[in-house]
Amino acid sequence: MRKIIGVLGLLSVAFMAGCGSSGSSAPATQVSGAVADGYLQNAQVFLDKNGNYQLDAGEPSTMTDANGAYTLSIDPADVGKYPIVAVAIKDQTIDKDTGLAVPNSYVLCTPAAGVSGTVSNFISPMSTLLREKLEANPGMTLAEAMTQLRNQLNMPVGMNMTGDYVAGSMAGQYQQQYQEMHQVAQQMAGLMGAESGLVMNGNNVNMGRFRSMMGQINQNMPQITDNVGQGLGMSSTFMNSMKTQMQTTLGGMPAASGFMNYSGGRMTPGTGMMSGSAMR
C-alpha cells in the first residue's frame, strides 16, 4: 500500500509540474494605425525588431488595406520597444491622394517611443523624421522632437505632430494647418522617392544613405515648408536643386554602409548649395 501511495504521489507532482511548464503566454497586443503620404494602400508594415528598416524572419508584418489602415499582433513586451516601419512599394502601393501606384519605393517609420496598443499609430514622413531626430540625438525625448518639428513647420503649440494629418485636414480646430502639413509631407515623400535608387536595393535599405537623406530633409524643412506656402511643387527651382544635391551627396557615400548617425546640410535657397552640418 505504501508503495502505491508513493507512486501516486510522484505522479501527482510530475503532473502538476507539467501543467506549470505549459502555461500560455500573454495574449498579443493589437497595434493599429494608418500609413500615409496620402493614405497608402497595399504598403508593407512590420515591427522592426533589429532596426534595419527591412522585414526579417520573425518580425510581425501585414499589408495596409484600402484606407491605408493596418493592425499588427505584437508581443506585449515589444510594444514601445521597437519602431514600426512601412514600405511604399513601387508599382504596388496606391497613394490615395492620386489614386495611382507610387512610382518609386520609399521607407516610412514611427519612433518606438510613440508605439502604443491603445491609440492609433500614424506612420508618415513626419513620424519618420521624428524617429530619425531621436536616432541622431539619443538624449532627446519624443516631446522635444515634436516641439522641434512643430517649430520647423511653424505650427501652433496645440497641434499633435504625430497625429493623422489626412483626417485632421478634413475638419477640426487645426484643419488648415493639417492641410499644410499634408502638403509638406507629400513633398517630403517626393524627395524620399526620388532618392530610392540610391537608398534602396530591392528590399534592402542602405541605412547610412537613408539617414543622410533624412538629415538633409530635416535641415531643409523650413525651406520645404516655404515651397509649399508659395504654392510651388516638386519641380520648383529649390526642389530641383535639392534633389540634385541630395543625389550627389548620397551617391558619394559607400554603396554598402551600416548604422550611422546621419549628417545633412541646409541648402541656401536659390543657390543649390548645401552647407554640411550634423543634424540637431
Rank of each mutant, 00 (worst) to 15 (best):
M207S: 07
N42R: 13
A69S: 15
P138D: 07
D65R: 03
S241Q: 15
A185C: 15
Y53T: 10
G264M: 12
G58A: 05
P111E: 12
G99P: 05
D97Q: 10
V115I: 11
I94M: 08
M267W: 13
G168V: 00
G38H: 12
G265T: 12
T237N: 08
A185Y: 12
A86K: 04
R280Y: 11
A86P: 02
M140I: 03
N160F: 03
G58C: 06
C109L: 09
Q179D: 15
I217Q: 05
A34H: 03
T110M: 15
S235I: 02
V184R: 06
Q216W: 14
V166F: 13
T93R: 10
A185N: 15
L47A: 07
T147I: 10
L10H: 00
M63L: 15
G233V: 02
G168M: 01
L108F: 12
G197W: 14
T249V: 14
N218F: 15
A26Y: 08
M188W: 10
T237V: 07
G163M: 06
L55S: 02
M200I: 13
K243C: 11
E59V: 07
M279Y: 11
S196E: 13
D75M: 04
Q186L: 14
L232A: 10
M234R: 02
T118V: 03
G38V: 03
M155W: 09
V115H: 05
K49F: 06
S127H: 11
V35F: 09
S12W: 12
